[in-house]
Design a protein around this nucleic acid. Structure first.
Lengths: 171, 171
DNA sequence: CCAAACTTTCAGTAATTTCTGAAAATTCAG
DNA sequence: CTGAATTTTCAGAAATTACTGAAAGTTTGG
């Protein structure tokens, strides 16, 4: 790979990673910054990110803040340098666990609350619609609860313990 | 639950299910129609859906088409009635498998292609950035590949075989 | 065929989300 | 303190996504 090819490949990767992000409910720029930092060997400062991705300071700042909030990147400072640098978690299993835990907190938890609340209503037995409402939401609730539990356990386990096991069982 | 309470509970559920959909990259109306049909005992026609959710014909039509495309609902017709009705798959495990397979096809597959393509480049060993690019995308690729394989197997298994097993192992 | 019943399309509009850039706030070396 | 370096905020603009409604298309009973 020549230096030119590499630049292209990297830019292409970052661009497409952004597109993929969108379809998973993550904004494009955030996914791109994440990709850029994953691929960077050293921590990068805001200006570098702005230049590289051609985005404004405000945009960079707010997406960096969000990424820190997700726990996917961290702030790095060097003594004698006032700038802040950012560094991505690079281990894929750790990344997966971080994302799993955050999505759980932000999205699965609220869903469960809604489901539990709906399914715990006492149906009027004369009304088949009411009975169906309660049983359908109960089934959903049970399923999400189980999935949540499993994801929980998996994402708190050692990669070396879980993955080989799952692979053996399911591949 | 009085009839009034029920109406409220149902409307509330549909509304919130829509909001939840958004954070998973599914448009609000589509999620709401899906919720409405999941809760309906009988198949429903387009006009009923339009009225119930206060949406236009065009909106209803295109989201219904998409839901059929996802395999989450199906068209139903009755002899001697020209209208089309729609019915949601109600079994939660089946729903899960359908969604898993579709997301795999639409989103995991393209991601994998990008990752494989990136990670198979031959790095110039003099350049640490290039080496990192290749190894990082390779690690991502391997992970997604494994996850994909597992999801594949799980979503093709009998609920009764997989779930109890996972629950036992992970809860 | 015809016409009524029903479905699909799509140009224009509305709503939502994301982004910019300049100003305000903060930090810190001297 | 002071002021230069840096980060944060946020009002308005741009871009994206979703929705409406009327017109065009399709199907089918008579």
């Amino acid at each position: 790979m020549t230096s030119e090819d590499f630049k292209k490949a990297k830019a292409e990767f970052i661009a497409q990673w952004g597109t993929l992000g969108s379809s998973w409910g993550i904004n494009r720029t955030m996914a791109q910054i994440h990709a850029f930092l994953m691929l960077a060997v050293e921590p990068r400062d805001t200006n570098t990110i702005m230049d590289e991705l051609k985005i404004s300071r405000g945009n960079a700042n707010s997406n960096l803040r969000d990424l820190v909030g997700w726990g996917l990147i961290r702030r790095v400072t060097y003594p004698g340098d006032r700038k802040e640098y950012f560094e991505a978690e690079k281990d894929v299993w750790t990344m997966f666990c971080t994302i799993a835990r955050e999505r759980k907190r932000r999205e699965i938890e609220p869903a469960l609350q809604l489901l539990r609340n709906s399914s715990s209503r006492s149906a009027n037995n004369r009304d088949p619609e009411q009975k169906h409402f309660v049983s359908q939401t109960a089934a959903l609730s049970e399923f999400v609860e189980t999935a949540d539990l499993i994801l929980n356990k998996v994402s708190r386990s050692e990669k070396s313990k879980v993955l080989p096991f799952l692979v053996k069982r399911f591949s």
